[in-house]
């Protein structure tokens, strides 16, 4: 008002959410699973840090990638890990992957009216030894898939994956079929290409790349031998094995 008074009290609503950029991606093979995410965390046009992990090891054979609002993401992972620990104390074994998937849906839906603003992708090895990927929306809708991208560059990466993983719009040579699962080296190349492409065209993607690889029990690690920046996370060589590959992405 001209006299300096307010017509009605000024209300500034506190917004409990933010969006912290980045992209995650997971691809399931026949007997392995690959889960990847970039490490940039941003808010608006500011890069908060060049290294904030979005991909987390849950068990010997399960990995969870979270993307969206970082505070919600970290809290959610913390709570999932806590539930898995309680499960271990109660049952003296790790929770199977499909049970973790259902647990995550329940935990997300529990917050239906104040949701975790987070897109989750769960990857790992199923009890039958197959590679699996489960993807979730923020309130717990989920499905098992062969591949999924989520986050800031989902719209850049997902159609590329449709083409390269599902062979969409490609006709097999007469008398042949497209493979239902790709070999590990091909999958790793596609993951790296996806992230370099997303980094090139999306400002919220870049800095670093973390690729988790989970191999089913008894599977050869031969194909990983020549990969640079590889680190083994599993402690026992006889069970399922887990590796992480750390690479640089462009920082601009």
């Amino acid at each position: 008002m001209p006299d300096g008074s307010y017509e009605r009290p000024q209300q500034r609503q506190f917004n409990p959410y933010s969006e912290n950029g980045g992209t995650i991606l997971a691809i399931a093979g026949a007997d392995f699973s690959v889960i990847a995410g970039d490490t940039r965390q941003s808010e608006g046009y500011s890069i908060q840090t060049r290294y904030a992990p979005k991909v987390f090891r849950l068990t010997e054979r399960a990995v969870l990638a979270v993307n969206g609002f970082a505070a919600d993401g970290n809290m959610f992972v913390k709570k999932v890990k806590q539930r898995l620990e309680w499960y271990r104390h109660a049952h003296a074994k790790d929770m199977p992957l499909r049970a973790i998937a259902r647990l995550i849906q329940t935990m997300l839906y529990a917050q239906r009216f104040f949701p975790y603003y987070v897109y989750n992708i769960l990857g790992g090895i199923e009890e039958d030894g197959t590679g699996a990927v489960y993807s979730f929306d923020p309130v717990g809708s989920y499905e098992r898939e062969a591949c999924r991208a989520a986050g800031a560059a989902q719209s850049l990466v997902q159609p590329f994956l449709d083409n390269q993983i599902y062979f969409k719009n490609q006709t097999p040579a007469p008398g042949t079929n497209h493979p239902t699962h790709l070999p590990l080296p091909d999958v790793l190349s596609i993951v790296i290409d996806s992230f370099t492409s997303a980094t090139e065209r999306h400002i919220e993607v870049g800095d670093g790349l973390e690729i988790y690889v989970v191999l089913a029990k008894g599977r050869s690690t031969q194909e990983l031998a020549s990969i640079g920046g590889l680190q083994e996370l599993s402690t026992r060589a006889e069970g399922d094995r887990m590796f992480v590959i750390r690479r640089d992405l462009k920082k601009d």
Partner: peptide, 8 residues
Amino acid sequence: LLGTTYSA
């Protein structure tokens, strides 16, 4: 204030 954390 949102609980967002990071390190650098």
